[in-house]
Amino acid sequence: MISIKNLHASIGDKEILRGINLEVKAGEVHAIMGPNGSGKSTLSSVLAGREDYEVTEGEVTFNGKNLLELPAEDRAREGLFLAFQYPVEIPGVSNINFLRTALNEIRAYHGQEEMTAKDFLALVKDKSKLVELDSKLASRSVNEGFSGGEKKRNEIFQMAMLNPKLAILDETDSGLDIDALRIVATGVNKLKSKDNATIVITHYQRLLDYIVPDFVHILYKGRIVKSGGKELALELEAKGYDEIKKEFEIAD
């Protein structure tokens, strides 16, 4: 699905990613954990195509295509989805209009016809149930005046609507109470299939009780310093990040 090789990225003069290697196959769930400032959000931003970052070295292949050559919109059209850590409020653009535009541009990219209004609305109705999103929110401006939980649920709702091949959840659990967390996680689990993959980026192990990963990677100072199964997350929870920091400080 996605193959990241020796990825280096910087913002300004500061190198943040310093040689990331990661291989994610269809049907897999990978968790990337790490202390603050380790480069977790940079990784998701670089993959999604945020232009603030400069890739200085390495390559990323997504479904056989050179991901780094594609503009952000084409990455999304190829099936990459980033659930934002801080979803953006866009006053004046309704959720519905936004999603219809997105869906139709993705369809056009694949040479498909526009979805009819009837089919689109049926899809909205169906998918909003998945994250228990009030149907009224769909007609409101994108994220405007949404609570923290509603914003995160809206991200998963969009994910459900766009049906991506690879979803990257960037700290989707941050700021969520346990009920919202459960709803979000249930939504993600329902969307999981053997044909798609998920990368869960998180600081805390808590989310991984609900979205169970096949692999856990620990990111520290711009590199994946340790990889393992789901038990690695529990180990990290027990020991804390300080252990990791001590262990890999020397290598730095």
Binding site: E51, P71, E73, R75, A76, I90, E105
Partner: peptide, 13 residues
């Protein structure tokens, strides 16, 4: 930020 958000959902520049 808003522009990137829209693009990240497949909407062209």
């Amino acid at each position: 930020e808003a522009l990137f958000y829209l693009k990240a959902r497949g909407i062209g520049e």
